[in-house]
Each structure stands twice: as structure tokens, then as C-alpha cells.
């Protein structure tokens, strides 16, 4: 068995202690996935596992066996920028760039969660589909820390893509 990473089958590591984040970064040199704390506290290592967001530092590589992993390197088609990547540039959704790949991967999953109508802590009426709003985005992105303070740009970028998709 193997892990499908950005569409490519990758063998499981020999050492079962290897986290998904370490597999990506150290073995596959997919260093777009960042490690900020290795404790699940910052969200920099966020990747998509079968389309849902996970913290790859708290996910053992072996847990991803037989599943689909998408990292920042696999988000876009070929040489194109993913709409979120383009929007992060357009809205200044970063400064140092270290938390950025995790923010973008989380945002991609968030848009899907919103599209599925999943509620959040700030959703006033959890019986109806959650509305698209800056506050919903802020709440749903709160697991992804940024220290440069690019939050306003990040939220604006995600809102921009959400509105483009809704249109």
C-alpha cells in the first residue's frame, strides 16, 4: 500500500514514527508544507487528506495509507496559480510567507465546508446553511496562526474567492 501525494503514489516510510509533515518535508522535499510548532498549535502544516484539512504534524504518515494527500504544491493545475494563491497575492495575504501554504490549504478546505453548509462557532442558526461572511471565515481560519499580522489580507483573499465561486 502507498499514499497518493499530489497524484503520485509514495511508499510508506520504514519508520512508523515519521509524521506526514516530516515525510513531506524531509523525504519528499515537498517543503511547501511548513512546521511551526509540531504540536498542532499553529496550523502551518495544514494539508488536505481526502479533501479535508488535517494537521500533518499530528498525523502519522502511516495513517495516510491508501488515502489522497494534497499539499500546497499540488493545489494548482500545472503552472497555473490556484485562485486562492492568486487572491493571496492580490490581497497581500502574507508577509514572511511561512504560514501561507497552511493558510491556503485550510482556506481550500474551508470553502468546501462552507459549500456543504457546515456550521461553525459563530453561525447564528445552525439549522440553516452557514452564511458566507468575513466573521465565518475568521472563525474557521482561527486554527491557522499568522504572526506578521496579514490576517485582514488573508480574510479578504478567501472572501474574494468564495464570492467568485458563488457567482
Amino acid at each position: 500500500m502507498a499514499i497518493s501525494i499530489n497524484g503520485r503514489d509514495v511508499a510508506l516510510p520504514d519508520d512508523p514514527r515519521v509524521s506526514l509533515a516530516d515525510l513531506l518535508r524531509d523525504d519528499l522535499h515537498l517543503t511547501g508544507t511548513k512546521i511551526g510548532c509540531n504540536q498542532g498549535g499553529c496550523g502551518a502544516c495544514t494539508v488536505l487528506l481526502d479533501g479535508a484539512r488535517v494537521l500533518s504534524c499530528l498525523t502519522l504518515a502511516v495513517q495516510a495509507e491508501g488515502r489522497r494527500v494534497t499539499t500546497i504544491e499540488g493545489l494548482a493545475e500545472a503552472d497555473q496559480l490556484h485562485p486562492l494563491q492568486a487572491a493571496f497575492i492580490a490581497q497581500d495575504g502574507f508577509q514572511c510567507g511561512y504560514c501561507t501554504p497552511g493558510q491556503i490549504c485550510a482556506a481550500e478546505a474551508l470553502l468546501r465546508e462552507l459549500a456543504e453548509g457546515l456550521p461553525s462557532y459563530v453561525t447564528a442558526d445552525i439549522t440553516a446553511p452557514a452564511p458566507l461572511s468575513a466573521e465565518e471565515i475568521r472563525e474557521r481560519m482561527s486554527g491557522n496562526l499568522c504572526r506578521c499580522g496579514a490576517h485582514p489580507g488573508i480574510v479578504a483573499a478567501i472572501l474574494q474567492v468564495a464570492e467568485e465561486r458563488a457567482a
Binding site: 511547501g32 508544507t33 500546497i72 504544491e73 496559480l81 502574507f94 510567507g97 511561512y98 491556503i104
Partner: peptide, 17 residues
């Protein structure tokens, strides 16, 4: 905008580690 934006949003910017 930041000239290094494309490198940062694609994960291509290589940091020290």
C-alpha cells in the same frame, strides 16, 4: 505587491530548514 509573492503562495520559497 511583494515581488516574491508567487514563490510564497506556491510553497516554492525555501527557508533555512
Amino acid at each position: 505587491g511583494h515581488l516574491d509573492g508567487p514563490l510564497k503562495v506556491t510553497g516554492a520559497a525555501r527557508f533555512a530548514a
